[in-house]
């Protein structure tokens, strides 16, 4: 198991020959509250060579459990969110898969990542053997409403994982604008 820092990458398929299926898990702890609280939504988007979403059928989240090519599948519940990636099924036009979490923009109080502790993303094999892990650094996140955790990307014929930890203050709207998601 390798632990990454922001910006670092790991060669998944080079170091694990024959790897064609990974499970990307995103976890976080939020400070419990008796009142209405911020709700965090994990999301994955498949991007083309231009770094933008190929289409809205290439998104995976709780209300779209499977990408159009069935390469990405959302498996999760309130406590554990994970996205299965069948690397061999990912179309060649996809150059990277970005994993992020946004704070649901609820009109009664959106919330921020300020209430989040110990968030991490990890990549495991289909048998749940952890390959790489990235613990997002704690910091001032009072205004952060979306966070890019990491990305899987192609490098020639191989797949790599890059740890990111990039916060957005513009929430899902900002991420959608950068990655070409049609809201």
């Amino acid at each position: 198991m390798a632990s990454l820092i922001s910006g670092a990458n790991a060669a998944l398929t080079v170091e694990n020959p024959g790897l064609d299926h990974v499970v990307v898990g995103m976890n976080w702890e939020s400070i419990p509250s008796n009142g209405p609280r911020a709700e965090f939504v994990p999301f994955a988007v498949m991007c083309g060579a231009d770094g933008r979403a190929v289409s809205n059928d290439h998104l995976v989240f709780f209300n779209q459990l499977l990408s159009s090519d069935a390469a990405l599948a959302f498996v999760g519940d309130e406590d554990q969110e994970q996205i299965d990636v069948e690397l061999s099924r990912v179309p060649t036009e996809i150059s990277k898969i970005v994993f992020f979490v946004y704070v649901d923009p609820e009109v009664r109080g959106k919330g921020t990542f300020a209430s989040v502790r110990n968030s991490h993303i990890r990549v495991s094999t289909a048998t749940r053997k952890e390959l790489v892990r990235f613990d997002l650094p704690a910091g001032k996140q009072e205004s952060v409403t979306a966070m890019i955790f990491g990305e899987l990307y192609r490098h020639r014929t191989d797949w790599k994982f890059r740890a990111l930890g990039q916060g957005y203050t513009t929430g899902l709207t900002g991420v959608a604008k950068d990655y070409g998601i049609s809201l």
Binding site: R37, A38, E39, F62, N63, E78, D104, E106, V107, R108
Partner: peptide, 23 residues
């Protein structure tokens, strides 16, 4: 819902559905 909000309800004069729990 898990967010401690009603799945459907009123906030003052406005009816709301938190779509995070649409399912």
């Amino acid at each position: 819902t898990a967010g401690n909000r009603a799945l459907v309800g009123y906030e003052k004069q406005t009816a709301l559905i938190p779509l995070r729990h649409i399912r």
